[in-house]
Design a protein around this nucleic acid. Structure first.
Lengths: 226, 226
DNA sequence: AGGATGGTTCGGCCGCGGCCGAACTGTCGC
DNA sequence: GCGACAGTTCGGCCGCGGCCGAACCATCCT
């Protein structure tokens, strides 16, 4: 297969509207599930599954299994550059604004199911780890005695459930772990309860309130303004 | 039509092997005829014509009529950048060399049918014009009396024919006119006869011999080494 | 004028590939 | 165990589009 044939193969992958929607939805570097991408592309989950398999086979996307979900992201920055260069040729309309609401807001703080992710989620995990309250290993996590006391004091009491208590969850924008499981959910719920964070409508982005900025700094030594 | 749909449309145009061959054949900035592009793409002239029409409609190619030929070239450098970025994603093979034999040789000097083009052809036209030997207008050209004497002295006597005697021909790499017609053919033939230039096999590129370098400098004040 | 050549248009064939319904696998949570 | 949900695979439908033969138009050359 010649270079030109390979180029045509890649270009043909971008040439389908559904796949183009999938790729552009991932252009901000996030990783999304197959279902989210199916919705973004306005096709059924089966159809999206086929497209995602082809894009992954061609190494345009990278896939990582996470429980019963499969997260897809652009395989490399080169892919994003390619998309932008095609956009540059295709888009004669000047002054177009970023179509993704929120922009960097998602990278700063967002929900991952019921727990916190983004820079805030990772910083929270770092803080608890450094303080010796939790210990995150490769695929599990534990809370120390001091940690239990700290969490009780903070007001984050995980509900009783068979669900895993504390688990590291790879953060897709930061590429470092944040805290999932019941503990992660309890932390997020308590932050919401305290008014430190606020959810946004129709978005996974989370805003940090002034009270939250102060609270995260005092309790956890977190300052995201840097 | 949304931005993403437009991007998909453009990408789909690159996604066909025949069109991909056409576009890559034009990546060095030259302008080629429909037939040459059909050959490059290994498809019939009718098929190539259809592809070329679509590429031109989408403003990926620019077309210019030249007699009974139609020359196609990339519509803008953006298109070339796009092709390269797609190549970058598609081509995992490192260290690939430029597939176009000759490289810059074509831009320096080449034949355009039976006359000279490229930097040499344009320089020749400039020299003759500045010396008052020929006068090139928008779509025609004339040779002055002094010009006729000069050409006779040089040994470039156009053969008798109904073919147009002197005509400016837009040079595709220099974007400026060179001399075509019987006069252009006679000049090229004489330069070849004098051993100033040499044709290359299977290429439109022409090499300037040491004798040619000296001759062009002395007779025409041309120095392409700059 | 007549012939040669470059290029396009038309018509029809055919196959690739996108799409979805249905059924299946795997994971989670109770 | 069960039900719910994410995701994939399979099968079949269907239409878009690439391809070429043939005819047609335009330009050049003699």
């Amino acid at each position: 297969m010649s270079d030109i044939t390979r180029m045509a193969t890649v270009a043909a992958l971008l040439g389908d509207p559904a796949r183009a929607n999938i790729l552009t939805a991932l252009m901000d570097g996030r990783a999304l599930t197959a279902k989210e991408l199916a919705y973004a592309a306005r096709v059924s989950p089966q159809t999206a599954s086929g497209h995602l398999a082809r894009l992954t086979d061609a190494s345009l996307l990278a896939m990582e299994k996470q429980g019963r979900h499969r997260y897809f992201r652009l395989a490399s920055p080169l892919v994003g550059q390619m998309l932008e260069s095609v956009m540059a040729v295709a888009g004669p309309e000047p002054g177009r604004i970023n179509p993704w609401r929120g922009g960097d807001a998602l990278r700063t703080a967002r929900t991952c199911y019921d727990h916190l992710a983004g820079r805030l989620g990772v910083a929270l995990a770092d803080s608890l780890t450094e303080a010796g309250h939790v210990a995150l290993t490769g695929d599990g996590g534990e809370v120390t005695d001091r940690g239990h006391a700290f969490l009780r004091d903070f007001g984050a009491e995980p509900v009783a459930s068979k669900r895993v208590f504390c688990r590291p969850c790879l953060d897709w924008s930061e590429r470092r772990p944040h805290i999932a499981g019941r503990l992660g959910a309890a932390l997020a719920a308590r932050c919401l309860e305290l008014g430190w964070i606020a959810r946004q409508r129709d978005s996974r982005a989370v805003t940090i309130t002034p009270a939250g900025a102060q609270g995260f700094a005092e309790r956890f030594g977190i300052d995201l303004a840097e």
